[in-house]
């Protein structure tokens, strides 16, 4: 069996001196959709932030290999250029910078880092329009400031739009489904499913089973108290839906 795209071994990490991840082991193969579920405070967001390289998270032990490289040794922008994308739980507003500029700047920064030629404004616009059409989003999106004045659902859809434009190899969705109405959920799921082409890997972090009705995972992992407490297939998610996380809560 070939090496998985993402392999996490005994990952321990602290926030403000408090250990949150207490030895995570997880492998996600190219083409796989892995769901990570867990109660609040179990370390789900810490895991995604550590993988994306956010400051303020101190890795104390373990390793993360991505595509044969030491992920933890890379700057956030290097990870991005190498194909790691995180859809934020709370997307950030950047007033005065329109979506089109932001997304094209990001795309070209990544392309430049990979030694590819930049995409010009016309080609970019063409691709952006196609993508928006597919995601049932209005073209006016491109002219609006990044996330400024967006509703919660619009912000999440913008994350999906950016993901579609940047074409990552590993996408981490940090509670992308929280706060979405059913239409937005469906569109988000459509965007995520469009990424499933056998070569990319997706890590879907969620509290609820709901999104998984639309994005059917290949594997489901329960994160509890900083460790993977159980792994299984889709059935595990359904079981959690019925029984809740009580069995995984610290006594």
């Amino acid at each position: 069996m070939s090496e998985p795209l993402l392999r996490i071994r005994n990952l321990r990490a602290s926030v403000d001196g408090q250990e949150v991840l207490k030895g995570i082991d997880l492998a996600v193969a190219a083409g796989e959709v892995a769901a990570i579920m867990g109660p609040n405070g179990s370390g789900k967001s810490t895991l995604s932030n550590v993988l994306a390289g956010r400051d303020g998270y101190e890795v104390t032990d373990g390793e993360v290999r991505y595509d044969g490289r030491d992920l933890l040794d890379m700057e956030p922008e290097e990870r991005a250029a190498a194909g790691v994308f995180m859809a934020f739980q709370y997307p950030v507003e950047i007033p005065g910078v329109v979506n089109a500029t932001f997304t094209r700047t990001a795309l070209n920064a990544q392309r430049q880092a990979r030694g590819e030629s930049p995409i010009d404004a016309i080609d970019f616009l063409k691709r952006a329009r196609e993508t928006l059409g597919r995601l049932e989003m209005d073209e006016a999106f491109l002219r609006r400031d990044v996330n400024a004045g967006f509703s919660g659902g619009e912000k999440k859809r913008n994350e999906i739009f950016q993901m579609a434009m940047l074409e990552p190899r590993l996408a981490i969705l940090d509670e992308t489904d929280s706060g979405l109405d059913i239409d937005a959920l469906r569109i988000v799921a459509m965007g995520v499913n469009a990424m499933r082409d056998g070569r990319r890997a997706l890590v879907v972090i969620t509290h609820y089973q709901r999104l998984l009705e639309y994005v059917v995972p290949d594997s489901v992992h329960v994160l509890a108290d900083g460790r993977i407490a159980r792994s299984g297939d889709r059935e595990l998610a359904l079981e959690l839906e019925r029984a809740g996380y009580a069995a995984f809560q610290p006594a």
Binding site: E77, V92, F102, A106, L107, A109, L166
Partner: peptide, 14 residues
């Protein structure tokens, strides 16, 4: 904010 900077860096900007 650090959040804005990180958001941009996660998208590939130095």
């Amino acid at each position: 904010s650090d959040a804005q900077l990180f958001y941009c860096r996660q998208r590939g900007l130095d």
